[in-house]
Write a protein that binds this DNA or RNA. Structure first.
Length: 386
DNA sequence: TCTGGGGTCCTAGGACCC
DNA sequence: TCTGGGGTCCTAGGACCC
């Protein structure tokens, strides 16, 4: 009776990851640094753009990325700049230049879109690409994508093509830099299972630690556990997901567009403080910046939140949901200070903070604000209809 | 010599309404 | 007298990712 379901073509998903992206962009501008250990990051780029000896760096900040030569000394992203300095004092340090990275990001994404338009943005330096409907053999297609990225930016990337996003993401790490990896379901046992469990996107430090305590170290270890066991230790949803992931199962689509959910600004003080004469103007400035950002993009938001990080690294947040969404600095500031006063009554903090931030969530496009949202929820719709 | 900044998603409890 | 369950909104915290 019913028609036979038409089998969907097997999916072909690529993950493309730019190689040491920020560092490579910097090397385009400073080719004389090629072959040297270079770290990018640290604090604000206020003191000029040129490379300085890492040995002279002082203060807070982390390595955002570094060249492969610096990695050979044990330096990696997320590491404190001062620790990197101790490991590799002969390295050069460069400040971040996001405008330049964004420019190259747009260039490489545009080059890929010429060949395969179904792209999911995963940040400044990586994308998923749905190649299912691109009629070309995978290896040639992969090489063509890499050549297009290189021609557009002068930069190399690593690509994996696999049956789904999960495997493509793991695969793009397997042959870095300048790699091309093709993965098939048949490769699961031989290629994927020997890898550490934390190589799965979604297993972070906490989950990995917990897995290790259960003697689960590799993806293969994970695959051999019964789902019931994983669900008992990690909850129904995450436990089931762990089991599926270890077996290479992932049905997530490549999402080519999504609306932003929040915008935020935060900053770390050079010295920890509980002084409101220091904190207040910084928070005010952050509110201005987030307002500018929302206006530039044409969004308004209803939930205004502040975030504090104490000197002991504990984070507290306080939210304030307004009746109507806003994007002007004064309204954001009012709501942010009201939220802050709930953590610091009479301007008194229980201990010094190292970071303060402001976030605007529950966003709407300006001019697309549901008029009855706030009032309607309170049963006040009647008078709005007059 | 400690540990940046910008996001997303999930969970869980309480308020409130039907 | 005590008795419901479901749904949505809001808040706070936490894990994770780039």
């Amino acid at each position: 009776m019913a028609d036979e379901p038409v089998a969907a073509p097997p999916r072909r998903i690529a993950h493309l990851d730019m190689d040491a992206f920020y560092a490579s962009v910097e090397l385009l501008r400073y080719p004389e640094l090629r072959g040297q250990p270079v770290v990018i990051g640290g604090r604000r780029a206020s003191e000029g753009r040129e490379a300085r000896p890492l040995a002279e760096y002082v203060g807070r900040g982390v390595v955002t990325t570094c060249t492969y030569e610096a990695r050979a000394f044990g330096v990696h992203s997320g590491m404190a700049m001062m620790k990197a300095r101790a490991l590799c004092p002969q390295a050069l340090a460069l400040p971040l230049d996001f405008d330049e990275y964004r420019r190259h990001s747009r260039l490489f994404k545009a080059a890929v879109a010429e060949i395969a338009p179904e792209i999911e943005d995963r940040g400044i330096d990586e994308i998923y690409i749905d190649l299912t409907h691109v009629p070309e053999e995978s290896r040639l297609l992969g090489l063509r994508l890499k050549a297009a990225v290189k021609a557009a930016t002068g930069l190399t990337c690593s690509i994996a093509i696999a049956p789904n996003k999960l495997l493509a993401k793991i695969g793009s790490e397997l042959d870095k830099p300048d790699g091309l990896t093709l993965l098939f379901m048949e490769d699961l046992e031989s290629v994927i299972w020997p890898l550490p469990a934390k190589r799965i996107n979604g297993i972070g430090p906490k989950a990995n630690e917990k897995l290790a305590k259960l003697n689960i170290v590799t993806i293969g270890d994970l695959a051999r556990e019964r789902p019931e066991f994983l669900m008992r230790h990690f909850g129904k949803s995450y436990g089931q997901w762990l089991h599926d992931a270890a077996h290479g199962r992932d049905e997530r689509e490549v999402v080519t567009y999504s609306e932003p959910k929040s915008r935020s600004r935060e900053t770390t003080f050079e010295d920890d403080t509980r002084d409101f004469d220091v904190i207040a103007p910084v928070l005010t400035q952050l509110c201005r910046q987030v307002a500018e950002d929302l206006k530039k993009r044409g969004y308004v938001g209803r939930t205004i939140g502040v975030k504090l990080r104490y000197d002991n690294f504990r984070i507290v947040t306080r939210d304030n949901t307004l009746e109507a969404p806003v994007n002007d600095a004064r309204a954001i500031r009012r709501a942010a200070f009201a939220a802050l006063s709930r953590v610091a009554p009479q301007g008194r903090l229980v201990r010094p903070i190292r970071l303060i931030g402001v976030r605007v969530g529950t966003l709407f496009r300006e001019g697309d604000v549901p008029a009855l949202q706030a009032a309607g929820a309170r049963g006040e719709t009647a008078d709005l209809f007059g």
